[in-house]
């Protein structure tokens, strides 16, 4: 149990008649990058939101450090949330604040750092995502990819134990996409945090993943190291990887 950061047990969630999660079982390792792939509309974002208590499951358990968070009250849940960071699929920046204040917000609300110190940390993070000179822009004045990167800086700012990334590289051009992947990999290797990443960008994800999980029909159809997943003979997995049409990713070949 020690090396498991998050344990998901038989998680079910429906919206009306639509079954989205239909018995998810998954153990996410501590200090590793776990990438969840799957079809669009397959329930990846819904699964991620369960991990931080934004959505309550119909049934099932989510164990984080020996606590089943599906049973927690809001106040106890907030203690768990303090250890998390999250990048939303659409960034979810506060549009009443400029870029600097958005990234500084968690620091101002949760730490007692001085404004100078905050400035230093925020600028460092903005520099890492390549947006140092956009501090005074409002979210409405940014492109989708820029918002994503500000969201990423905000998610990383408190150096939380676990970070959930919903599509960190969607809406980014290939070069910036690579920078962001490297940034994710670097911070993770350096800080040894637990990262859970959702993505469509299969190639990119195989670069950074320690473990890959394939979400299909509301269950985890495949779970293993990138190498294991690539070699998988399961039909869903092969179908999904074939879609990338990249030699070596069609299963079979090492």
């Amino acid at each position: 149990m020690e090396n498991k950061a998050i344990r998901i047990v038989d998680l079910h969630k429906s919206f009306g008649a639509q079954k989205v999660l239909d018995g998810i079982n998954l153990e996410i390792e501590r200090g590793k990058i776990t990438v969840i792939i799957g079809k669009s509309g397959g329930g990846k974002s819904v699964l991620l939101k369960h991990l931080i208590g934004l959505i309550k499951p119909d049934s099932g358990e989510i164990w984080i450090n020996d606590v089943d968070i599906t049973r927690l009250k809001e106040k106890e849940l907030n203690e768990v949330r303090m250890r998390f960071g999250m990048l939303f699929q659409e960034a979810a920046l506060f549009d009443s604040m400029d870029v600097f204040d958005n990234v500084a917000f968690p620091l101002r609300e949760h730490t007692r750092k001085s404004e100078q110190e905050i400035e230093r940390i925020v600028e460092e993070k903005l520099n890492q995502v390549g947006l140092l000179h956009f501090e005074e822009k409002r979210p409405a004045e940014l492109s989708g990819g820029m918002k994503k990167r500000v969201g990423l800086a905000r998610a990383l700012i408190l150096d939380p134990e676990m970070i959930l990334f919903d599509e960190p590289t969607s809406a980014l051009d290939p070069i910036i996409s690579l920078t962001i992947l490297d940034l994710i990999k670097e911070t993770q290797t350096y800080l040894k945090k637990t990262y859970v990443v959702i993505s469509h960008d299969i190639l990119g994800m195989f670069r950074i993943a320690d473990k890959v999980a394939l979400l299909s029909n509301g269950t985890i159809a495949e779970y293993g190291t990138p190498h294991e997943v690539r070699q998988s003979r399961k039909e869903v997995t092969m179908e999904f990887l074939n879609a990338t049409k990249i030699p070596g990713f069609s299963g079979g070949e090492p």
Binding site: K49, I52, L54, N78, M82, F88, F94, E109
Partner: peptide, 20 residues
Amino acid sequence: AQLGTMRVTEQIDALTVMAL
């Protein structure tokens, strides 16, 4: 309108996730 926009663009969820 402001709060509604914050809701549908997940800004309210972002606050929740920050334990605020």
